[in-house]
Write a protein that binds this DNA or RNA. Structure first.
Length: 265
DNA sequence: ATGTCATGAAAATCATGA
């Protein structure tokens, strides 16, 4: 089972690039973020023509997440539990069944800038709600995937220029501490789990986002903020994890690229 | 620092979010 996450930065603007990538990458499941559209604005036909069922959790203008699946899909839920008054569409779950069932959670974590401030407070509160939901799902002792745009740079080696991010909500100590708490619950960072051996001082350059501004892509001035975290039972099935970096260099690209895993499931 | 992009409301520019 191949599961991908991709922040597309607008379903309307990105449809051609998204379909080109789907046709070549052929993931069984694609978790999309930043639809920037209501549910009714997401076309189904181009995906259904390719064998994908479409489940969306949209919002006008901003945010919005979706699950595309070529495998049987059930028990779809929308919204991150823990605050019924939160109107932001940033979380969707479903169970997909290949050789065995896998619970997939697609997430678009708040950016949090400027920090400090109310937006950063929302990011930290959202992370606390996510910890609670992760804890619930881990108790099932089943394969579970938490994939999406985390808006978290976990470590200095996840940025080309870490010194430029020290005051940023994506890299502040509290943000990184919340990331470490997630891992401490028992989750595995898929990209880091399968990377080839490198010397400790190596610049890893496994980036997933390059700003549109200031020639960031041309300079490879990127950050790694799109992640797939795996429950222990999912990590046991992990066969591969890759970043589709060349997608960033194509025509009319998103500022993020797809990241995917292959599971023996 | 920003050399950008997408969206929506308002009305062919601007505010917002990233």
């Amino acid at each position: 089972m191949k599961i991908a996450t991709f922040n597309i930065n607008g379903i309307k603007a990105r449809l051609p690039a998204l379909l080109d990538w789907l046709d070549e990458a052929r993931p069984d499941v694609a978790l999309l973020q930043e639809l920037k559209s209501v549910d009714e604005g997401v076309p189904h036909e181009p995906f259904e023509d390719r064998g994908y069922r479409v489940e969306t959790h949209g919002q006008k203008g901003f945010n919005g997440v979706a699950i595309l699946s070529r495998l049987p899909l059930e028990d779809v839920t929308r919204g991150l539990p823990g605050d019924d008054a939160d109107p932001q569409a940033r979380w969707i779950e479903a169970t997909v069944t290949g050789a065995r069932p896998v619970r997939v959670c697609g997430l678009y974590l708040p950016n949090g800038n400027p920090a400090p401030g109310p937006k950063y407070d929302y990011k930290l509160a959202w992370l606390a709600r996510m910890e609670a939901r992760v804890t619930e799902l881990l108790a099932l002792e089943e394969p579970v995937i938490f994939a999406g745009d985390y808006n978290i740079i976990p470590q200095p080696e996840d940025a080309a220029r870490p010194e430029a991010w020290t005051e940023d909500a994506l890299f502040l100590p509290q943000t990184r501490a919340a990331w470490r708490r997630l891992l401490a619950l028992g989750l595995t960072d898929a990209i880091r789990a399968v990377q080839p051996h490198r010397p400790p001082a190596a610049r890893l350059r496994d980036f997933t986002f390059w700003d549109y501004q200031a020639g960031a892509w041309d300079r490879d001035n990127g950050i790694r903020i799109d992640h797939l975290l795996l429950s222990p039972q999912a990590a046991d099935l992990l066969e591969d994890a890759q970043i589709d970096k060349p997608v960033r260099g194509r025509e009319k690209p998103s500022d993020h690229v797809p990241v995917w895993i292959e599971l023996a499931a």
